[in-house]
């Protein structure tokens, strides 16, 4: 079957690989139908992802149809059903797992990163990793996983309708943050340097926007918040230097919650 493989840094090819074996106990075989490229796939392609070895099949933003079902899979999962996938693993033994924080498992293996992903015709997946909706298209299903990253940051911020949330960066991750904060009825101020991205941010749920290239970020935030400043700030640009500058900004006053998304191995240096 066909697959996409990042064979080495800056080299990506269409390859032919064996089909997976019949789904094992508790697994389903998925016919992969729609996949989104993640920023981590781009980082892997560029040779900048230290968690990746080559060759690697990328892809963990998945819309698929159940092709066959292994033994012991609950009846809710049926052949022909459209599904999406959580691409993570958790060991159950590390300190994070023992604390119930499975999403931060020390030994997590994300599809397309530490193990092969879904840019191929068929994959076998444990049924516990499946989600479905009878209302979403396959494109929307493949969009769910990247949006969860932002929703999780909003959850970490304990965001409520009483919050004013500033979101720095309106790429795919930032848009998920905006949608997540919007879902909790918070006031959402989107910040970017690209007016088109800010316009899209508003359609994703931002109530206000600031172009930090053409406007004074500090002054605009003070104006928008009656000089109180925002209550939650979420950094979704993805550079350590940006986070450092954010932390130093004088706009941070009072009790504030400041978050940094981390989906790659980039580390904050003190």
């Amino acid at each position: 079957m066909k697959a996409i493989s990042i064979t080495e840094a800056n080299r990506c090819e269409l390859v032919d690989i064996p089909e997976p074996a019949a789904p094992g106990a508790g697994e389903v075989r998925l016919k992969v139908r729609q996949v989104g490229y993640c920023g981590s796939d781009l980082t892997s392609f560029r040779g900048l992802n230290p968690m990746v070895t080559y060759p690697r099949i990328p892809g963990h933003e998945i819309g698929a149809t159940i092709e066959s079902v292994g033994s012991g899979v609950p009846e809710q999962w049926k052949v022909g059903q459209n599904v999406l996938v959580s691409p993570y693993t958790s060991c159950g033994q590390c300190s994070a797992c023992k604390a119930g924080r499975f999403n931060t498992c020390r030994y997590n293996e994300t599809m397309g990163v530490q193990r092969d992903g879904a840019l191929t015709e068929y994959v076998n997946i444990p049924h516990e990793k499946l989600f479905t909706s009878d209302k979403l298209s396959l494109a929307e299903m493949a969009l769910v996983e990247p949006l969860t990253v932002g929703f999780h940051a909003v959850s970490r911020g304990e965001t409520t309708a009483d919050d004013t949330v500033v979101v720095f960066g309106c790429g795919a991750i930032g848009l998920g943050v905006i949608a997540g904060a919007s879902a909790r009825k918070a006031r959402v101020i989107a910040v970017d340097i690209d007016d088109e991205k800010l316009a899209l941010a508003k359609r994703c749920g931002a109530t206000d926007s600031i172009n930090s290239m053409t406007e004074s970020l500090h002054e605009r935030l003070q104006e928008m918040t009656d000089n109180e400043g925002p209550t939650v700030m979420i950094e979704a640009v993805g550079t350590a230097s940006y986070f450092q500058s954010l932390r130093r900004r004088s706009l941070l006053r009072g009790t504030r919650r400041l978050h940094r998304l981390r989906k790659s191995s980039r580390r904050l240096r003190n």
């Binding site: 999403n103 929703f151 999780h152 009072g254």
Partner: peptide
């Protein structure tokens, strides 16, 4: 200031359910 600084990594099953419910209920510009 007394900032609370938190990291955020990957996502939980609850986050997946929340995104699905959101996309089902709003006109998201997919």
């Amino acid at each position: 200031k007394e900032l609370d600084i938190r990291g955020s990594r990957n996502a939980t099953p609850e986050d997946f359910e929340a995104v699905i419910a959101h996309l089902e209920s709003v006109a998201f510009p997919t």
